[in-house]
Amino acid sequence: MITADPSELPVLLERSVRAAARKADSMADLPDDLFRELRDAGAFRLLTPRELGGHEAPLTTVLDVYERLGRLDASVAWVVWNANWGFLGALLDERGTALIWNGEKDPVFANSGSPGVAVPTEGGYRVTGHWKIVSGIGGADWFAAVAVVMEGGAPRETASGVPDVRLFALAREQLSIRQTWDVTGMRGSGSNDVVVDDAFVPEELVARFDRPARLQRPLYRTFVPALVLPGCSAVVLGVAQAAIDETVALATVKKTVNGGVLADAPRTRSAVARAQAELRAAGLLLRSAAGALEVAGEAGREVTMDQRADLRAAMSHAADVCRRVLVSMYELGGSTSLYRRNHVERIFRDGMAALQHANHSADLFEAVGRVRFGREPGVPLF
């Protein structure tokens, strides 16, 4: 049954998530029974409008759920993040919403930020593309595809002079999945490739970023891409916290060459304290930046470019901190960190894989700097 309070999800799902972690890692996807439990609990409804059965939860609440799930398992948290595209129900018109939320079952989405192409045709668009690393696509009913509208063989520009990028909702039967997810980190996320070849998408299943949402409520009045972007950073904050927790547990029993335990070494205590302080500070910064967008949405104010830059900077900062924490904790474990029986081994490779996401690119600091100098960020959906 769906929980009335989304903040309860990590506790409600903890036993099942932990029990399925190794199986997901070995099969390179989430087990079907765990996916069904996530769906039934409402883990994929965090951003869905209330009238469609969703939580319509504040962004900071959603980020907290992602972070706490990340402490349990990176792959599960990642799939939950990438499946929470229910806010499309606030963007699409009523005809499009009825096509997706048709009463048969709770729809589950997957998305990839890399763009395909869309060519206008009568009544809609013809969409084509090859999207890589689409997490959770194996259990998804709908694919929320980003695509650039093309005219005359070139990207069509909006009135502001930027490429016309839109979201296209494609049903599962309109795409093919390529089993490409042969990796070491975040194996359980099932992040395979998606190929779409000239699929028709009606106008009512196309959403735009440059227009106000149909449902003008606080969550949907904010900068819509921000409902997605910081989720991956929240996940890695949780993964890095798990690395600290596991290392602290290990340090109380792992013997050193001097005969004592690792926890008695000053270097260990200093490294753990430093990691914990930096991680908590990074988490506070991310929530503060997200909270500023919430305040703007509640007040009906437009989110400023500076606020968007603050969010991007907080994400990049969180990525830097998490990378340092993961390396530090892996190093403290010594040779023990090499063995699969030690949880830090999987946490480390999962966390480092999550940090490879484009949203965590160091180049985004440069885009933030451009904004600080009064220039355009030069990054799509910034």
Rank of each mutant, 00 (worst) to 15 (best):
Y66G: 00
L69K: 10
L69C: 11
L69D: 10
L72R: 05
D73E: 12
D73S: 09
D73F: 05
D73L: 04
S75M: 08
A77E: 06
W78A: 14
W78R: 13
N82P: 00
N82G: 00
N84P: 01
N84E: 02
W85P: 00
G86D: 03
F87W: 15
A90R: 02
L92D: 05
L92E: 06
L92S: 09
D93G: 15
E94K: 12
E94V: 03
E94S: 14
R95A: 15
A98R: 10
A98H: 00
L99N: 11
G103E: 03
E104T: 14
E104D: 13
E104K: 14
D106N: 01
F109E: 07
S114E: 12
S114I: 10
A118N: 04
A118K: 02
T121Y: 00
E122H: 13
R126C: 03
R126V: 11
V127D: 04
V127W: 10
H130A: 12
W131L: 02
V134T: 14
S135Y: 06
S135F: 07
G136C: 11
I137H: 07
I137Q: 09
G139E: 13
D141L: 13
D141E: 13
A144D: 11
V146Q: 09
V148A: 09
M150A: 01
M150H: 08
M150G: 01
G152V: 06
G153P: 07
G153M: 04
A154H: 14
P155N: 09
P155E: 06
T158D: 03
S160A: 15
S160V: 12
S160M: 04
G161C: 05
G161I: 03
G161A: 04
D164M: 06
L167S: 04
L167F: 12
F168A: 02
F168K: 02
F168C: 05
A169M: 15
A171H: 14
